[in-house]
Design a protein around this nucleic acid. Structure first.
Lengths: 87, 87
DNA sequence: ATAGATTTGGGTAATTCGGGCG
DNA sequence: AATGTCCGAATTACCCAAATCT
């Protein structure tokens, strides 16, 4: 009578990124191991209306991933680049 | 001692699928070697609530495999296709 | 067999979508 | 051209207790 748990909870995170470092990912963001942000979160970071974030996505200024229901999700790394990359 | 990996090999190979080239699999993967994801894992990838993933499965938007106890498991390949394929 | 985490099921708020207007 | 707001409809998030998984 012992635990039989050959497999854990699948905490597979593949290549965990180090904080702050700017890792050059593949040209196209093919890695789905990216943290995603909701429209409200991105809007709060930029201090704009969520609708404005949606317009940025529609204009191609921001990469958007869609849920199966049509809601948009945004890549955290891209947002942080745009926020901190004030050039 | 019997080692059986119910949820897949958990090797986290992170194979880099190079530009657009998709494997020539038949329509569906008939082997049981397909890695399955738990609702929480799929939810984390899409940045949604696990219950939302359940709704997608009920609506037929996502293929679900049921455990003998009724819990759902999802095909990793399908999830990845939906994440990156639907630009 | 016990424990802790996860999932399921329903129900009800909170977001988001899309279009159009100012 | 770029934002913010109003509207209805759709999607998603959080609440609970019971069942299932590791």
């Amino acid at each position: 009578m012992l635990y039989w748990a050959p497999n854990g909870a699948h905490a597979c995170r593949c290549t965990k990124r180090q904080g702050g470092g700017e890792m050059n990912m593949t040209t196209q963001d093919r890695h789905e191991t990216e943290k995603l942000l909701t429209p409200a979160e991105v809007a709060a970071l930029f201090r704009v209306d969520p609708k404005t974030v949606t317009r940025w996505a529609k204009a191609g200024k921001l990469t958007s991933i869609r849920t199966l229901g049509g809601h948009r999700r945004y890549r955290e790394s891209e947002v942080r680049d745009l926020l901190g990359g004030g050039h």
